[in-house]
Design a binder for these strands. Structure first.
Length: 590
DNA sequence: CTAGGGTTAG
């Protein structure tokens, strides 16, 4: 029939094409048919092609989305129904930016959205946290007269609850003439998300017909706030449980660091799904138990993309980048034949960065992503910022940083750290200030980055300010942060002050802290404190001789040759000349 | 509408 279309006259072609498009077609056939449609100038039939395209199994999302983008770029806007299907398709597969862009394009070409269009576009805005977009659509709801449509109103509610504007959500909810179970559940979810458990409970208790989702949402509210007693009580009270109910409990125990109870729930649930397994793997990832995670992974008979992603992440997060890469390779093998997605690649880029395999990392960026039609997003950009800054291509990293749609804490931190290790300390400080100005909460990693920058340029006063500001964000400095401070203060020659800081630590200083003091004492030839610091280093890490050499240097620097010689001999006897790793140390050795 | 997988240090 395809051949007939190719040869036939225009009048017979239309019904044939229409019939064909209702059948099952392979991707190749569809492409051919699409070509013929264009040859015959039947552009109005493109909508059918698009709708056919998005009915393919979602495994092919990357390819389908790519083809869709091509069609949408080169043709005139599809009809409302088709455009809406496209928006929904993007939405259901995580392409929220594209969903929203399609909605905007549709408006631009003068098409009036339907209630379905509006509901889908709102969902995209909700998931993107695009507050302006959502509010704009809210206005259109009024001007297009969609008020009173339960689906639209519930979508609006979903938008406001997702962006945590519970005041507006509550107002909308109160004014709704008709509410369905989803509207109620959205309200519970909204209060749970904004951390207001009492109000969530209030909605939950006044809700007329609770379904399993209502119960699960409430249980997850308690488990998110680490109230596992209450979560368990509700879980037991539920009239009906589905796998999600169990998964929520497992996640709660994992978040409360109770991996044993999580394990118990996992073992006793009547039906496990992939998400149960992924949740457990995440728990093991957090606990650094790579072996148990792998065991669970191996036991799954059906392994999908997400499961692979969770295991690859487990390896990458626990500093097993080689294993991450080999599992990535395994998933691409014909016998498993699973497509990687953005998440896979973000993790793999991180693994490349850890392995210093910059060629593989930039090949993924420059070539592989295009090959498999994966479009850039902010998580990928962040992973690449780290990769490029670790390989010294700080300019590339800065470019990617500029391209970010939303700069989150991870992106800022990666950039700050990237600047710090590439001799752009002042830029690092600038980026840090910019982050503070945009009211993004720094975390412990951010402070490691900025203190590293400050340590390179020895800005003592600014470092103190920075260090002291940690408590404004409820952050407790870790021994690593103290090490950095000791290094900064000590390198400036203020050794007693550095020692005082160590003594003020609320926890036991680890070897890094004493090592920083010892190195500072070596620089400034302070025997008294150097001996104290060295003593602690020996106690904490007797097998390393680097500390002995440092102390010997101190003796030598003040002319106490005998002691220096004796110490060096002892170091030599031990046979080990290993020096503890430290960026500062490396500079000293150069 | 509920459950899962991504990116930053050491």
């Amino acid at each position: 029939m395809l051949a007939e279309v190719a040869s036939g006259g225009a009048s017979e072609v239309v019904p044939k094409v229409t019939t064909l498009l209702k059948r099952f077609l392979t991707a190749k056939q569809l492409k051919q048919l699409h070509g013929l449609i264009l040859v015959h100038g039947l552009n109005h039939l493109e909508g059918l092609v698009i709708r056919h395209l998005i009915s393919f199994p979602s495994d092919y999302y990357q390819g389908i989305a790519h083809y869709l983008r091509l069609i949408l770029r080169h043709s005139k806007q599809p009809d409302v129904f088709t455009a809406t299907s496209v928006i929904r398709y993007f939405c259901n597969h995580g392409g929220f930016h594209e969903a929203f862009a399609q909605y905007v394009d549709m408006q631009r070409s003068g098409l009036l959205p339907s209630s379905f269009t509006v509901a889908s576009a709102l969902k995209a805005c909700a998931r993107l946290g695009n507050e302006n977009g959502g509010m704009m659509i809210h206005c259109q709801v009024h001007s297009h007269g969609f008020c009173g449509d339960v689906y639209v109103e519930t979508a609006l509610l979903g938008f406001y609850t997702k962006v945590k504007d519970m005041e507006t959500a509550q107002k909308l909810f109160d004014e709704m003439s008709e509410r369905n179970v989803v509207s109620w559940n959205s309200m519970i979810d909204g209060y749970v998300r904004s951390g207001n458990i009492p109000l969530a409970e209030k909605v939950f208790s006044t809700m007329p017909n609770k379904d399993t989702v209502s119960w699960n949402t409430m249980v997850s509210g308690h488990s998110k706030t680490r109230n596992m007693e209450k979560a368990l009580r509700l879980f037991q009270e539920m009239p009906e449980r589905n796998p999600t109910s169990w998964n929520v409990m497992i996640r709660g125990y994992i978040d409360s660091d109770n991996i044993d109870l999580a394990q118990n729930f996992y073992n006793s649930m009547p039906q496990r799904n992939t998400i149960s397994c992924i949740t457990m793997i995440t728990g093991y990832t957090k606990h650094g138990d790579v072996e148990s995670a792998r065991e669970l992974f191996n036991n799954m008979s059906q392994k999908d993309q997400s499961l692979y992603n969770s295991m690859i992440t487990c390896y990458s997060k626990n500093s097993h980048p080689k294993e991450a890469l080999s599992l990535f390779d395994e998933m691409l093998q014909p016998k498993s034949n699973i497509q990687p997605d953005k998440m896979t690649l973000a993790t793999i880029i991180s693994a490349c960065s850890q392995l210093q395999n910059f060629n593989l990392g930039s090949w993924i960026h420059e070539s592989y992503m295009k090959q498999i039609n994966i479009t850039m997003d902010d998580h990928l950009r962040t992973a690449l910022i780290d990769l490029y800054s670790k390989s010294g291509s700080i300019t590339k990293a800065e470019e990617l940083f500029k391209e970010l749609h939303k700069k989150d804490i991870v992106a800022y931190t990666a950039m700050i750290l990237g600047c710090s290790i590439n001799g752009k300390e002042h830029i690092a400080i600038q980026v840090f200030d910019e982050m503070m100005a945009s009211k993004i909460r720094p975390n412990l990693v951010t402070y490691s980055g900025i203190l590293t920058a400050l340590s390179h340029i020895g800005m003592v006063k600014k470092s103190y300010q920075c260090f002291d500001s940690m408590k404004n964000f409820g952050l407790e400095p870790t021994p690593d942060h103290y090490s950095l401070m000791v290094e900064i203060i000590g390198r400036n020659g203020r050794l007693d002050e550095a020692y005082d800081l160590i003594k003020s630590m609320p926890m036991e200083p680890h070897v890094g802290v004493w090592g920083a003091l010892l190195r500072a004492c070596a620089t400034h030839g302070n025997v008294e404190l150097g001996e104290i610091a060295a003593k602690h280093c020996f106690e904490l890490e007797s097998e390393s001789s680097g500390y002995g050499s440092l102390l010997a240097n101190i003796y030598a620097s003040v002319g106490r040759w005998e002691e220096a010689k004796r110490l060096r001999e002892r170091v030599h006897e031990k046979g080990s000349v290993k020096v503890p790793g430290s960026s500062w140390m490396d500079h000293q050795l150069e």
